[in-house]
Design a protein around this nucleic acid. Sequence first.
RNA 1: UGAGGUGUAGCGCAGUUUGGUAGCGCGUCUGGUUAGGGACCAGAAGGUCGUGGGUUCAAGUCCCGUCACCUCAACCA
Length: 477
Amino acid sequence: MANEKDTFVENIADIEKDFPQWYTDVCKKTQLVDYGPVKGTMVIRPYGYAIWENIQHELDVRFKATGHSNAYFPMLIPMSFMTKEAEHVEGFAPEVAVVTHAGGEQLAEPLVVRPTSETIIGNMYSKWIQSYRDLPVLMNQWANVMRWEKTTRPFLRTSEFLWQEGHTAHATEEEAIEETHKMLGVYKEFAENVLAIPVICGKKTEKEKFAGAVATYGMEAMMKDGKSLQSGTSHYLGQNFAKAFDIKFLDKDGTQKYVYTSSWGVSTRLIGALIMAHGDQRGLVLPPKVAPTQAVIVPIAAKKGGVLEACEKIKGDLEKAGVRVLLDNSDRSPGWKFNEWEMRGVPVRIEVGPRDLEAGKVMLFRRDRCEKAEYPLEGLEKCVADLLESIQTDMLESARAARDERIVKANDLQGILSAVEGGNFVLAGWCGCRECEDKIKEKTAASSRVLSEELQHEVCAVCGKPAKHTVYFARAY
RNA sequence: UGAGGUGUAGCGCAGUUUGGUAGCGCGUCUGGUUAGGGACCAGAAGGUCGUGGGUUCAAGUCCCGUCACCUCAACCA
């Protein structure tokens, strides 16, 4: 519960100065999340979990529309599975948790708590896939995974987190690559239309690629302080896991072939992205499509005749119109409620008092712009529904405008450094070599996020040799 | 894992320099008046200062150890 005055900072510029602190304060004060008793774990509280449920729902609709089915695979993976794909085991070895004892005895083979499920799913796919008729296999799993991170932050990096991981197997390379791109496209559409977060998608460099993948594509979102958050990934795995797990099928031409696989995922980190992409000095700003409560009704002078009754009626009407609505009839003062629900990011507030009712009006407040205006009581459902819709699109537009303002070009190391220090994404030329990528990281603390689709530079910002790519560089969470 | 910081009432903090019996604000509880931006009045409860040891007549305060949390860096969804 919020006690003292919860204005997190005085003005929006100050958010950028002390953004990490602002972020942890918001997470706790708005009752999204709490720390668990085991270090690095988080408890997602009902308000936070409700956002996750809305995210799950919106994604499930999209996954089903693209032909995918949900399934569930075990959390415990035999150690021997993890070691079958060389790059994969090397990439994940430092952060896996291992079960060595169970049932009061030491296990003959230790079990790994899944950091991701490519291996155990590969193992099952090898049994399920025999013929070209079995392909493609298009599955998704909603699950928890565990990665023993050294330092943690709510939603952005915790030892255990919730996610979905899609795993598909295809007869041909083209089809698997197409799937990889298609799902990245699904993520992009979802991020922009549901989360109202504009994203930059593209291929990751070798250095940033998933352990065991042939190619990794990422979705990067800009946070209010200009840093980037990797919000989703889609991997083309080639035949790496097919060969490691012996996933073969008999093709039409009568020969045995390895399948081509893909995997893709987004996690509860998206909740962190929502907070950091839209939040302001008053706290959360949630886009209507994922807000647990889309409209809150605050009665004024509730004891006076008719006020509470009118609120109940408005609530019923809105519910009928499909709006997630809450009537706050607790005995707090109205001002307290205004601040509380603003802090928790509810998109629309409906103020109902005796004076309004007399005039046949109510006051609507929209959280994204902090604007208040009178609306007629008659036909209010329609007004609220329309308002929610415009909040949704306005949030995306203003986030996009803010982001585009902060994408700049640079031609050398100094240019990259001053740009990222100003909280920008930087487009710079790159020759393609690991040394230059490392040097940028070392000198500017910015990492390569994704490759731009078009080549916009002639030379590498570091070595001056001809540029092979234009790359988005940014400091990242 | 490297560097820095913080642990005192449910929450946020002061007190530590210069040792002398534990303070403030918010919240909570009781009663009442209120209500259009975190209301007001009156009363009450609540902590031995993260933790272990040491110095001292006396330790929240000084010394040594230890744990937890936070920030930055490194690593990652």
